[in-house]
Amino acid sequence: MQALVIAAHGSHLNPDASDPTYAHADAVREAGAFDEVREAFWKEEPHFREVVRTLESEEVFVVPLFISEGYFTEQVIPRELRLEEWDPERWDSDGTDASQATLEATDVEKTVHYCGPVGTHDAMTDVIVSRAESVTDDPDVGEGVGLAVVGHGTERNENSAKAIEYHADRIRGRDRFEEVKALFMDEEPEVDDVTDYFESDDVVVVPLFVADGYHTQEDIPEDMGLTDDFREGWEIPAIVDGVRLWYAGAVGTEELMADVILERAADAGADVGDSIETGREAAESAGDDGTDPNAGAGAGD
């Protein structure tokens, strides 16, 4: 038997913070590749600490629903899972290429495949593009359009910027969008000045965050000038300095994220059969009405 654990942050204050985790877990459940699927959290239950013991499977794949390699993925999650042999060296990564490490948890007799975060997986590039397609309602979006991938920046974690740049580079390499830029909340180039960095008349802005919350629903919309007061919402697109800004909201709410989770587990040796395909078809046939970019406002903690 094999189990999948999706490890996410969660929140004590904002009930919506875990919604994307539940949605992706349910998509993985429906894909049917795993005997057991569990959500696990730092701030909700089951806690990282106690999730593995709730499983009957001997083989457990843990996929962190985090954007970058850093404090949570390198320290908190492995420690709380009791992966004593863990060392960030086991990922052998320079910030964006962690794949997995096979370890034993000390409180259970199980093999734990500890995977890299979803945010740095190559498949995430597709999710960002797909997000741009859904917010513009244009499956061929790209020509004459700029794309901004937005992240925290280095203040909290230097790898956070690396992950943003990694995907921006990959999308740029595809020659699909007129221009592609990585922008940040707390360092240059800053998302506040988004219109300064583009020449195109249309710019799609995709924040690389796992869930909507304070940053994506309050800070960024106000900083970019989409609205003076986030509580009043904003137009999609909104005209700022003569540029049409298509603000996508957190990429982590995109349905295709379930595929990235499956890809992560598959890379670590999970037998996922054809569930990635199946999941993708299901997501496509569900159309682009699955996510409301204005849903889930509120601060995480």
Binding site: E45, R53, T54
Partner: peptide, 14 residues
């Protein structure tokens, strides 16, 4: 039961 009270069954069993 585990969605209502996560991990309670496992810890009770232990």
């Amino acid at each position: 039961v585990e969605f209502f009270y996560p991990a309670t069954v496992a810890n009770w069993h232990r």
